[in-house]
């Protein structure tokens, strides 16, 4: 239970810093929760929905959401979601886990190089929304 709360706090905290909130819960579920990769991914998706819904509502009220551009992107993503879900099932947990590890390497290196990017005024650290 303490691990669950810490994973939740970690996800919320990192998400509010514009970092990979999705990564932290997925890693927790895989490494400490003993879940299979695909199951952990599904749980991660369900976990994200209420937080995303609440944040989207709050951001929308502040006029921060560009709905036209956002929904155009989302529409283009719909067929690729099916492709991604199919590919996940095709690859299976072992390969998916390795590919996810490579994605983590990319995220980790990007985080360690954050010093240079911090000088950028549009750095994600200024935001308060969850990011996946």
């Amino acid at each position: 239970m303490i691990g669950t709360i810490l994973a939740g706090i970690g996800s919320g905290l990192l998400g509010s810093l514009g970092m990979g909130a999705g990564a932290i819960l997925l890693v927790y579920l895989r490494v400490f929760g003993g879940m299979e990769q695909i199951q952990a991914q599904g749980v991660n998706l369900l976990f994200f929905l209420p937080i995303a819904g609440l944040s989207l509502f709050l951001h929308s009220r502040k006029g921060l959401v560009q709905w036209k551009n956002g929904l155009l992107c989302a529409a283009a993503g719909i067929p690729m979601v099916f492709a991604g879900v199919w590919l996940a099932g095709y690859l299976g947990g072992v390969w998916l886990s390795k590919l996810f590890a490579l994605l983590l390497v990319y995220i980790g290196v990007r985080e360690l190089r954050m010093k240079e990017e911090k000088k950028n005024p549009s750095s994600p650290g200024q935001d308060s929304s969850p990011s996946r």
């Binding site: 952990a40 993503g77 719909i78």
Partner: peptide, 13 residues
């Protein structure tokens, strides 16, 4: 969409 379906995360990146 591909990242989201494949990994259940990573789209925001």
């Amino acid at each position: 969409g591909l990242l989201n379906g494949l990994f259940g995360a990573g789209g925001g990146m």
